[in-house]
């Protein structure tokens, strides 16, 4: 991987986030979350803020990566990037880093807002660290989905399935609607691992083994998906017309 090309590619991604209004839309969504937090009030804020942040880093990232891939395929710009001396590793990493930036931006805004205005307890360093790996894992999932989906609607359907199968159970669990035993069952789910990490970031007491395992699970998932599924198929996915 060429480091200087990676930085240029990342800068290009950031410029395009602005030119294609993605940064602005992401910011608007964050403001929307803030409004919702304002409406639900101090009492409920500690329960819901982690959920919003989780949704942003998980579901929004899948959508961003998936939609981005479809859009770039339409503009044929991936092809012309792939015939530069950059290498797929640098190209993919630059996109992952841009996704991380977006997720961090919302997380920082929401967490600071919640901490100062709604007295929500936050472990800032842990939260931001965990958001990075959560975003990376979901960006990888986004690529896997986009490679399998025929078009954007197909992608939306897959995200829907993913929500029903993985995200909703974790959210219900977080809201206390499911019995304790689900904590173990759900641990094979990336969303559950993510949610537990976010919970810890909001000063909930999470057993150390859960933190370790959850973190490890997301790291392994990211590496396995990126190295064995996304990167080898990237050219094929990106060029397919």
């Amino acid at each position: 991987m060429r480091m200087h090309n990676f930085l240029k590619l990342f800068k290009g991604e950031m410029v395009r986030l602005v030119k294609y209004n993605i940064l602005q839309v992401s910011f608007a969504v964050t403001v929307l979350w803030l409004l919702v937090i304002f409406l639900i009030g101090k009492e409920q804020a500690p329960v819901f803020v982690p959920l919003f942040i989780f949704m942003d880093a998980a579901v929004m990232t899948i959508m961003l990566i998936g939609a981005g891939l479809f859009y770039e395929k339409q503009e044929n710009t991936i092809k012309t990037l792939m015939i530069t001396p950059s290498g797929y590793a640098a190209i993919l990493s630059s996109k992952l880093l841009a996704a991380v930036y977006l997720a961090l931006q919302s997380t920082v805004i929401i967490s600071v807002f919640a901490y100062f205005l709604f007295d929500v307890a936050v472990r800032f360093v842990a939260l931001y660290g965990f958001i990075i790996i959560i975003t990376l894992a979901h960006a990888s999932i986004g690529y896997v989905f986009a490679a399998r989906a025929k078009d954007f609607n197909g992608l939306i359907a897959m995200v829907g399935m993913y929500m029903v199968l993985f995200a909703f159970p974790s959210i219900f669990f977080a809201l206390g609607a499911l019995p304790e035993t689900f904590d173990y069952l759900l641990f094979i789910s990336p969303t559950h691992a993510s949610l537990r990490l976010v919970n810890y970031g909001f000063a909930e007491s999470v057993p150390l083994w859960q933190l370790g395992l959850g973190f490890l699970y997301l790291v392994v998932l990211t590496v396995v998906l990126m190295v064995f599924m996304v990167a080898p198929k990237y050219a094929e996915t990106a060029i397919r017309e």
């Binding site: 030119k19 044929n76 710009t77 092809k79 012309t80 001396p85």
Partner: peptide, 17 residues
């Protein structure tokens, strides 16, 4: 890729740049 230049059959540009 330093050696070759590739002209594609279809436009390959970022439309909002």
């Amino acid at each position: 890729y330093e050696d070759i230049g590739v002209g594609f059959e279809l436009p390959v540009h970022f439309s909002k740049l």
